[in-house]
Design a protein around this nucleic acid. Structure first.
Lengths: 336, 336
DNA sequence: TTGTACGCGTTATCAC
DNA sequence: GTGATAACGCGTACAA
């Protein structure tokens, strides 16, 4: 039924070895022979059997992307960036989502991927997550996104710096009671979450402002979580006049909470987000923009490089952040 | 280095054939033998070589998901639904995004996937898209999402009905000039787009309302596109008092346009969206909710069923829609 | 119920 | 530059 390399060899009047070399662009093939083989393969609509090729070569021909989520804004975008790079390579992209490591539905990716990939791209997951830690025992190249580990390549942003930009902006506007909407109660399994909290605390401290647990609330990275968090902050004895939300989605929830309390974002309470969600632009949210798709693309490229030249050492890429100031932040005014 | 089936056979004191049968759960294996083999495999940390297994069995062990986009709200969610089902199977999920078929960056998936998958899941793409049409020549099971084709399984919603729900709602509220924010100028490559337009036209006609090109604008399925479309509609000689946007993201853009013109959604101009985006809830947008993740999950399940029993005929799944009425729609009031 | 032996379609190592 | 040919690791008739 399907063509085999022997069919091509026979038809082109050469050996299977030559067909293999010619089609893969290996050296030591007469240009004329190579072209003839190419023509025949084309004419007979031949494509190599990946299974046979992989068995013989020992390479899996695929890389795995391991992510906690697929549909969430950030992860979908990183994935898209990864795919855009892998598309042009000859590797298959195997997708595996494992859920939040702190949730009960979390399931380890490790077993399913054994012997079927040449490398891993891990998004956000801590390296000691069950099922993820074992990946490093496989002796395959791994590129980490949003976290790092000795001897392992990594791509990400400077979360501490980004968080500092956001909070410093509020400080500069004269705010003295600056709240935080974080993801969950510490310790978080996710590195960016911890680092953004660090940036928040550091900046407050340097500005001579007190760090009060009463200024912090958890928003679980969702819109409604952010809304609840803001509502909770507003209900406290001495509510903040400004808030840094660790993600745009939580910040958008916070905006909504403000409005439903008759408060206007910016004028009454300033809000800064983090991400660069499209919705931020349309809801006039000040935010720290990270180049999400690029994060994925750079990580994928780093992995490809590593597969091409396995002797190279690990690479660490840090992508730049940009603060976009919009109407949700304004100088502090005492509320009447 | 890595264990082979022979190592297990030797260690368990049986033949490789028995190991193969035992590990795959085939019948005609003594329970005691099977258990012993399992133990040995477990102890030696053995996993079959997918390449060898695939070569010998002729099965590719993977399915491909072909989608125009990865990061967009709808597609990311469908993909997530697909992955949740495939996760539990023993098939690999190969991801391939091809871009909008009407854009120049579109690239055909066909070649890259030859011989490496057992079936296809195609999201939204028209079956005559370059590179997609050829898939059907491969004689592999295909499940189509958001479109259909004779002899091929499909999963989706009734876009005409959904569109009718939305527009009828506006008619019932007394609106007579009902605008449409569509994706692009017809003909569209996407079936849902065409069907939603049909539903819009049909409902208008049945209500005895005129169909005016002047009431329609393109929003390209993005927030800002929706905003521009609404702005354009407002600038026309006789602007609509209500608008049906074919996606929530476009509807959200429309809301923003209204506000920036000093108009209040609902009170001044009613807006209905389509999708069930989280943001719709938080911006009080009336919308037609579709079960997006379920669409992906059902499609994946349909494909798995088809792989299990290839003799079964095609299946057609139509998932239910739900209209959620919120504050963005209200009875028509003549503007002062 | 179990074992033997061949075939799956390449790649890679030699010789030539 | 090219051709034989031995792996690669498993599935599966067929025989026992």
């Amino acid at each position: 039924m399907a063509m085999t390399i022997r069919d091509i060899a026979r038809e082109a009047g050469v050996s299977t070895a030559t067909v293999s070399r010619a089609l893969r662009g290996l050296p030591n093939v007469d240009p004329v022979t190579r072209e003839r083989v190419r023509q025949v393969a084309e004419r007979l609509d031949y494509v190599v059997s990946p299974a046979a090729s992989r068995l013989a070569s020992g390479r899996a021909g695929s890389i795995a992307v391991i992510t906690p989520y697929i549909a969430r804004w950030y992860f979908a975008r990183v994935l898209s960036g990864i795919e855009s790079v892998l598309q042009a390579s000859d590797l298959d992209l195997l997708l595996s989502s494992v859920g939040d490591p702190s949730e009960s539905n979390h399931l380890p990716p490790h077993r399913k991927l054994r012997r079927r990939v040449d490398g891993f791209l891990v998004i956000s997951l801590p390296t000691d997550t069950p099922g993820v830690g074992e990946i490093f025992d496989l002796d395959l190249p791994v590129v980490l996104i949003d976290t790092d580990r000795p001897g392992c390549s990594s791509v990400g942003i400077d979360d501490v710096a980004g968080s500092r930009m956001a909070v410093q902006h509020l400080v500069n506007l004269g705010h003295e009671r600056i709240g935080l909407i974080s993801g969950r109660a510490l310790p978080s399994p996710f590195r960016p979450e911890e680092n953004r909290i660090v940036g928040y605390h550091e900046t407050l401290a340097e500005a001579g402002l007190a760090i009060e647990p009463d200024l912090e609330a958890c928003g679980h990275f969702t819109i409604e979580g952010g809304e609840r968090a803001m509502t909770s902050l507003l209900a406290r004895p001495r509510p903040p006049t400004a808030v840094f939300a660790m993600s745009d989605e939580m910040a958008l929830g916070a905006l909504r909470s403000l409005r439903s309390h008759g408060l206007e974002p910016g004028r009454d309470v300033s809000v800064v987000g983090f991400d660069g969600h499209e919705m931020a632009e349309h809801l006039d949210l000040t935010t720290v923009v990270q180049p999400v798709e690029q994060i994925g693309a750079r990580a994928a490229r780093a992995l490809l490089d590593r597969l091409d030249s396995p002797t190279e050492g690990p690479v660490h890429v840090e992508l730049p952040l940009e603060m976009v100031v919009r109407g949700s932040t304004a100088p502090r005014r005492d509320r009447s």
